[in-house]
Design a protein around this nucleic acid. Structure first.
Lengths: 360, 360
DNA sequence: TCGTTTTACTAAATCGTTTTACCAAATAAA
DNA sequence: TTTATTTGGTAAAACGATTTAGTAAAACGA
């Protein structure tokens, strides 16, 4: 079955004129067929360029195309989907939209889907366990053909193709799109090392974040390789679901309360780095003169923060578009075996929040 | 027709167990009916609690409910939608997702829709004229029951209910949800006045932003009322579609190049205020000591910027939920007349980016 | 007792496509 | 001339629900 996304446009009428021609109601195949004195079957065959269409003379085809254009015929989405058992729709599971992270990924997803005639339904789970179970069910009921999860644990039976952006669980049938965390950690640690930092504090992510564990593991590894000692007192963790810098602010206050000296802070992400900078400022620590702060993600907030954040960039848009492309491929080739992980590369983006450590 | 969103849950089986009972495929009404030795009609009547259902004895009803629960029966979305001519879906038109503004509105929309069994399809137009025409068509083809537009001009024939968040065009059938811009402008201007500012610079929005014109008009009005003179040389306008602070940065550089003195800057939104602060910093203007900067929107970025932004808060989440509620009402009461505009109130949020003007 | 109403259902139409299975006429091949 | 193939279509089934228009039996009323 060939899906015709775009009807041949011969006439230059505006949508308004067409609207009036069809009296405001969209025309059905049956009506169009009646108007042409042909059967719906013939129209369907011609409009979809089905195999049988070669036996239909060009002249008839032209008549059909012309009428379809004139009446602005569009196949009814439900009828077609019911028949074909296809929805041309994906489900998107995200924690929350306004954190900057998911939105960037969605942009990438949409950029691919819109050229393929696909749409997507979004569901935010807010890290709530009940929604993590319920939303996927609802999406499946809506007949989505696949699911793209973003920073979301898979708490349901994967009966359809799934791509998980920043997913780390190895589940049959689920492709994870992940950052090369080893590289990311090395980029971060080496950058701080080169600047002379040895006492580095860390903000770990919330337990519910998919990347928390791997990021922490790789950072420890990279630190060991560089001979950096990680002091337990210099580790704090984000708490709570607030998608604003608030959590990073609170965590850093806790860190400062311990009165242990550190010259650099490696935050879990840009959002928490921004919160951290606020806490540091309030404690009369200058960034970067007294403490260097390193973010993660490179969301829009990073470049224009004051001071501009040095950060490890994740190619979020590309991760979104890769997720969409992969899922489309999975649909196109259901029997092909797909890699369980696709890896993308991070980049160090040096701005103003990190600086050489100078003993005072 | 009553739509049963939630099936009675008698058994405590996990979704996985149920999955195995039905052999992985979801069961159809016909199959379920055959299994019970009844007609599909009877099941439909009972499950939907149709008027005729009173003539069915409770015992039979129980059998039906039980079997439906046991086999985890779900009505096929396409079949039901085809028959009922309903999609339980809205279309959302946004300029872009990752600017913080649209995402907050979408959060509000989703919070309402998810309790009503509705989903939404998102389409980003990036302010491109072709997409402004094309996307609504695609959404309508997908049979959305209504459209919520966010900061988006209506370039199509409104054949279905529409709510436009921050829309200002008066179009029959379109309800605009707008901020009380008079209040907003007054809040901003009065705040700056009280702090002693008289030479105020302004960043206007891009021409494509729905709020640009009204915001500018109301600000001028408020300035006149306060006896503030607006110097043409102190007005700059955002240019380009970049959703990052970049545009505000560029605009402010242009402003500074004019070498005209000003003590406060009223930006079009938080994003551009953040860009402006960067430009001011680079020009060795301290914020707020030398120049006060006032933002607009109160997105997540505002509170934790350095310095924290004083801003005019738009209740974006509420605007989204109000939009969703209104659109649902429009569907429920197609003949009722709805107000052409619904107004929400701004709030002044005083933080650190504005301060008293002190002559040096 | 007869007619009416209520009870407990069901057959068939419908929503708007696509697909399968066919048919009649014309043309080509043997 | 007969048979096979191509041409140019169409009728009907299918997708999976809901709804309309019934029907047969039981209960009720007069």
């Amino acid at each position: 079955m060939r899906i015709f996304l775009v009807m041949p446009r011969k006439s230059k009428k505006t949508s308004k004129e067409k609207f009036e021609e069809t009296n405001g109601r969209s025309i059905s195949l049956k009506e169009l067929a009646a108007h042409l004195g042909l059967s719906p079957t013939s129209l369907s065959i011609v409009l979809n360029d089905a195999p049988t269409a070669n036996s239909i003379p060009q002249e008839t085809k032209d008549r059909i195309f012309e009428a379809a254009a004139k009446f602005n015929y569009r196949p009814n989405y439900f009828a077609r989907s019911l028949r074909a058992q296809r929805s041309f729709t994906f489900g998107l599971l995200v924690p929350e939209l306004s954190d900057g992270y998911s939105a960037m990924v969605l942009n990438g997803v949409e950029s691919v889907l819109s050229t393929e005639g696909f749409f997507y339904l979004t569901a935010s789970h807010l890290h709530r366990e009940d929604l993590l179970e319920h939303h996927p069910q609802m999406l499946i009921e809506r007949q989505v053909e696949g699911i793209i999860a973003v920073d979301t644990p898979i708490r349901f039976n994967p009966t359809l193709p799934i791509v998980n952006v920043s997913g780390h669980d190895k589940i049959e049938g689920v492709t994870n799109i992940i950052l090369n965390h080893d590289s990311a950690a090395k980029l971060g640690i080496e950058h701080l090392c080169k600047l002379g930092h040895r006492k580095i504090a860390f903000i770990k992510g919330q337990d519910f974040s998919s990347d928390t564990e791997i990021r922490w593991q790789t950072i420890m590894q990279a630190a060991i390789e560089k001979g950096i000692e990680i002091d337990d007192d210099l580790i704090v963790q984000l708490e709570g679901e607030n998608p604003s810098p608030e959590t990073g602010y609170a965590a850093t206050q806790k860190l400062l309360a311990r009165k242990k000296k550190f010259t650099a802070l490696f935050a879990f992400n840009d959002i928490s780095a921004i919160g951290a900078i606020r806490a540091l400022c309030e404690a009369d620590c200058r960034v970067p003169e007294d403490v260097s702060v390193l973010g993660f993600d490179d969301t829009y907030a990073a470049a224009f923060h004051n001071p501009a954040l040095t950060t490890i960039k994740q190619p979020l848009f590309e991760m979104g578009s890769l997720a969409a492309k992969t899922l489309l491929q999975k649909l196109a080739e259901p029997n092909r075996h797909f890699a369980q992980t696709l890896t993308v590369e991070p980049k160090l983006v040096v701005r103003r929040s990190t600086a050489r450590f100078s003993r005072k």
